[in-house]
Amino acid sequence: MEFTDPDGMQDAILKLDEKGKNWRYSADFWKFILLLRDYMRAVGAGEFSGCVHDYLDKSIGVYRTCSQKRHSPTESETVRNNRQMCKERTFPVPTEVDPRGEIEMFAHFKTSHRDTNDPRMHYYVDTQLTHKVYIGYIGTHLTNTKTN
């Protein structure tokens, strides 16, 4: 597990703290981090193969999971095709993951499946080269057509 932009993320997390002193967000993000760790453990042990979203639909032994409603494996086509919105979701990674030194992190967890503007955690899973999860962002919902 690697946080790719801790300074930028710290600012976003502090903004969340100012928004409402809602400690539920912290607990949710910690659960998502542990869930991603368990996903990588299950993949590494050969007990699961597939993407995170499919993993969430399974109950595999002692590995953590959550409702698929709390996860988005990608962003909408509108967001993916909008240069500015796409840039907001691009975060640093080692050049061995992507030669550009950054990658689009469209997959994300939501702290609620009811509030479309709740905070998000954007991440990238590299099961091929580094076998790490890169968390690029934890914070308020990034720009999209509903947040503008």
Rank of each mutant, 00 (worst) to 15 (best):
M1W: 09
E2N: 09
E2G: 01
D5K: 00
D7P: 01
Q10A: 14
D11R: 14
K19D: 15
G20S: 10
G20P: 07
K21Y: 15
R24H: 12
Y25L: 09
S26D: 12
A27S: 13
F32A: 02
D38K: 06
M40V: 02
V43A: 10
V43S: 02
S49W: 00
G50P: 00
C51W: 03
Y55F: 14
Y55W: 07
Y55Q: 01
D57A: 13
I60C: 07
G61Y: 06
T65Q: 03
T65H: 05
T65V: 06
C66N: 06
S67T: 11
R70M: 10
H71S: 05
H71P: 01
T74E: 08
E75V: 15
S76D: 11
E77A: 07
E77C: 05
R80G: 05
R80S: 08
R83Q: 13
R83I: 14
Q84N: 14
K87W: 12
T90P: 06
P94H: 04
E96T: 15
E96N: 10
D98C: 13
E104Y: 11
F106Q: 10
A107T: 15
F109I: 06
F109A: 04
S112A: 07
H113M: 09
R114H: 13
N117G: 04
D118F: 01
P119Q: 09
P119W: 10
R120C: 04
R120T: 09
M121Q: 09
H122Y: 10
Q128E: 10
H131W: 08
H131N: 09
Y134F: 13
I135M: 02
G136L: 00
G136P: 00
Y137L: 01
Y137W: 06
I138N: 02
I138G: 03
T140V: 15
L142A: 14
T145M: 05
T147V: 10
